[in-house]
């Protein structure tokens, strides 16, 4: 029997952090996405314990400022792309507002560290979401295109093909054949 799962990483990670920190008897509060404030300062050993516990789940403590900001940018973009409501403003404006830095600064920093531009990252995120939506089979390509702020299916196809090198329908086909294949094995 097949079951399709959708993951809400926000809730997932939050839950894990809460559990793990609570298990270590640490008092904390969650400020924003990916940001917690510990009540007391902790020793290096405790820090190591936390790091180990969280690393099991792929959760890392980001140390330096740059990395923190980069992560913030990524998270904001992810949130922006994944929100069900279409965006009312340009993404650059959105980021600037949300992160309180100039777009130019953010852009430069992002490219320097990740070797990709913000625009590219946004596109990747969009396409990633498109892939998930396609696989869910609930929406048509037209609806997906609309949700992702594309002017038409053709536009979505073009972007999709630009990023991945294959068309949305080819993607659909491959995933379907993969599923058939895994059932055979």
């Amino acid at each position: 029997m097949k079951a399709y799962l959708k993951f809400d990483y926000t809730i997932l990670t939050k839950k894990i952090v809460e559990e793990k920190l609570a298990a270590l008897n640490l008092k904390f509060s969650v400020i924003g996405f990916g940001e917690i404030e510990l009540q007391d300062t902790i020793s290096n050993e405790k820090l190591e314990l936390i790091t180990t516990a969280l690393s099991e789940y792929g959760i890392e403590i980001i140390e330096n400022q740059k990395s923190i900001l980069i992560q913030k940018i990524k998270d904001t973009i992810t949130e922006m792309v994944n929100s069900e409501e279409p965006l009312s403003v340009k993404s650059s404006v959105y980021l600037t507002e949300k992160l309180n830095h100039s777009y130019g600064y953010l852009s430069n920093l992002f490219s320097e560290v990740t070797y990709t531009s913000i625009e590219n990252f946004i596109m990747i995120q969009k396409i990633e979401l498109a892939k998930n939506l396609i696989l869910n089979n609930q929406l048509t390509l037209t609806e997906i295109a609309y949700q992702l702020n594309y002017s038409s299916v053709a536009h979505l196809s073009t972007q999709f093909k630009k990023i991945t090198g294959i068309t949305p329908s080819a993607f659909q086909r491959i995933i379907a054949k993969r599923r058939v294949q895994s059932l055979k094995n």
């Binding site: 053709a154 196809s157 073009t158 329908s169 080819a170």
Partner: peptide
């Protein structure tokens, strides 16, 4: 119809 749809997608960039 699927064939047509897929072929348009392959040529989407050129068409644009």
């Amino acid at each position: 119809n699927d064939t047509a749809y897929a072929s348009i997608q392959e040529l989407s960039q050129l068409m644009e």
